[in-house]
Each structure stands twice: as structure tokens, then as C-alpha cells.
């Protein structure tokens, strides 16, 4: 037994746990990012603190997401290949659900790389690329709901839908009203 799990199940359990944790951390990253452009969370912290949290969250959800991908690559049951990380809808099963995860990963790589190169990029171009975070989160959420083994559990499902609903509310308010007045 390794960490309370049989060795042959280690990668499968790790994939599920890191998938949940990376999704949660991604929610916090998106939430703090939207909060910078709305005043709904001003009661919680200043914009400077929220910006610091938004930048910091990539140090949490990126390694967790990478661990999720590596665990799935190593797991014999999931049967995810290297090419499935870049080309969506190629898997032997669950083409749509897993393919959305591939699209999400590709968008994450694009958004992450351009964020690292932000100082060397045209700000307007960077901003439009960074706005892909919204569809990226939607795609990630659908991937989680349609392929997440633990999303069928009521406690996981209810928390995830509640967080996604909050983000959707903030996102819509951001799109419709811009930066909300205090």
C-alpha cells in the first residue's frame, strides 16, 4: 500500500485527486482574475492583493494540472497517449469529454506562455489572448463534469457547480456591466 492505495491503483487515484485540486485552484485563479475587473470582491481585499493572489495561483494549479496529466499518461486504465495531449477527440472512448480536456490543456499552455512573455508582447494582443481564459474555464468545467469520476458524488458536484455558478455570475456581470460601480 502506498499512501493507503494499492500500487496498481496509485496513478488512477493520483489522477483523480490532482484533477480535483487543479480544478479548484483554477477556479480560484479565474475568480481572482475576474475580481480584478469587477468590484464585487472589493470587500474581501484590495485590487493589489487580488492581483498578487491571481499571479500566485498559477504556481498552484499549473503543477497540479501537470501532475493530473502525467498521472493519466502513466495510468494503464485511462490509456491516454502523448498525442492525446495535443490533438483532441482521438481517444478510444469518451472522445468529446476527454477531447475538451485536450483543448483546455492547449489553451492553458497558450495563456500561460503568453503571460510569461507579457512584458515582451503588445499589451492589446496579450489581453485578447488572456481573455481566452473565459472559454478555457468553460471547456475545463465541461471536461470535469463529463469525464470526472468523482463529479458524480453529491458533495463534489454541489461544490463545483456552486463555484462555477459564482464565476459565471461574475463573468456575465463583467461582460454586461464592465467594472461594476462601488
Amino acid at each position: 500500500m502506498i499512501l493507503g492505495v494499492p500500487p496498481e491503483m496509485l496513478t488512477w487515484i493520483a489522477a483523480r485527486a490532482t484533477g480535483l485540486a487543479s480544478y479548484f485552484a483554477l477556479c480560484l485563479a479565474v475568480l481572482s482574475g475576474i475580481a480584478l475587473r469587477t468590484s464585487l470582491l472589493d470587500v474581501l481585499a484590495t485590487n493589489r492583493a487580488l492581483r498578487a493572489l491571481h499571479d500566485f495561483m498559477s504556481l498552484i494549479w499549473l503543477p497540479l494540472g501537470a501532475a493530473h496529466v502525467v498521472a493519466l499518461l502513466l495510468d494503464k486504465t485511462a490509456r491516454i497517449g502523448i498525442d492525446d495531449l495535443f490533438v483532441p477527440f482521438q481517444t478510444e472512448y469518451g472522445q468529446l469529454a476527454i477531447g475538451l480536456g485536450t483543448i483546455s490543456l492547449d489553451l492553458v499552455v497558450l495563456i500561460g506562455l503568453t503571460s510569461l512573455l507579457r512584458d515582451r508582447m503588445n499589451l492589446k494582443v496579450w489581453r485578447w489572448i488572456h481573455r481566452l481564459s473565459y472559454p478555457m474555464f468553460v471547456v475545463t468545467f465541461l471536461h470535469a463534469v463529463w469525464s470526472g469520476t468523482d463529479f458524480a458524488a453529491p458533495i463534489v458536484s454541489s461544490i463545483s457547480w456552486a463555484i462555477a455558478g459564482g464565476i459565471a455570475l461574475l463573468g456575465v456581470s463583467r461582460i454586461v456591466f464592465g467594472r461594476l460601480p462601488d
Binding site: 488512477w12 485527486a17 472512448y93 469529454a97 476527454i98 463529463w146 468523482d150
Partner: peptide
Amino acid sequence: VLFGGWGYAATHVKNPNAPLKPPV
């Protein structure tokens, strides 16, 4: 969430309600 998810997954290794069931 990471450790809670690990504990939950370890105690529910096979979920009959899982949306995806890869062929073995």
C-alpha cells in the same frame, strides 16, 4: 481539496456512476 480528494478517491476506487468507463 488535494488530500480530501485523495481520501475520497482511495475509499471509492470504483465509482459505478462515473461518466466514463474505459474498456479494459
